[in-house]
Amino acid sequence: MSPTDGTRIDHRFAACAKEGRPALVTFITAGDPDFDTSLAILKSLPDAGADVIELGMPFSDPMAEGPTIQLASQRALAAGQTMKKTLAMVRSFRENDVETPIVLMGYYNPIYAYGNDAFLKDAREAGVDGLIIVDLPPEEDEELCIPAIKAGINFIRLATPTTDDHRLPAVLANTSGFVYYVSITGITGTATPDAHRVAEAVTRIKGHTKLPVAVGFGVKSAAQASEIGRNADGVVVGSAIVNAVRASLDAENRATETTVSAVTQLVADLARGVRAARSQAAE
């Protein structure tokens, strides 16, 4: 692959692989607890050690989320976050960072309400690299997945413990960027994944695709990130980061002086975790 080929996501995963470590994929909810603080957090993530950024588009009815991310969505919406503001955050981020991939994650209806074509155009112009849309399975690929690919945006699919070998090819067919393996059956930030079973699943998926496989849902600590990252190409941490935001807020859910640093400290810790993931193997 020549340096001009591929997307920011491809380049970043390739660079991490070259370093012999998994990528750290960090999730925050756009606009949580307010636009300015959330933008400051977003801009601080690469220096803290995030390799890929997932930016959650808040939705009133996040069916796959546990309480932590549900509440973050509610805080963001209460503070006036909209899709336009989420895209504005990406634009602002891109003024100083043209390398860190940004993946928008969320649910279909706010995009559908925005208008699919307008959304893809505006997202592309803002500097969005990929989309993860929880409620768009391959059966609905004509809706947004195919148009996104045509617009030059990666459509990253979730594979889950219920996605068997028979179904996996359909799930992988139009996937690009990376594959997001959901490590548990359940909602975000609740159960703890079993590292052994996750490793088996990652190996199974890798048998079907050359794309990097990132693992998320329930990864909370640097130690877990390190363990999961032994054979996964990326480790996604979401609820733990959103919890760090929440824990830093005052009684009225307003940001405090420690909000940004609470996130950067945790992300730095997680970044050390992923760097230690294969240190024994490397020695």
Partner: peptide, 10 residues
């Protein structure tokens, strides 16, 4: 249609 998370699709 079938707008559900992958976990539920099977």
């Amino acid at each position: 249609g079938r707008f559900v998370a992958e976990t539920l699709m099977p």
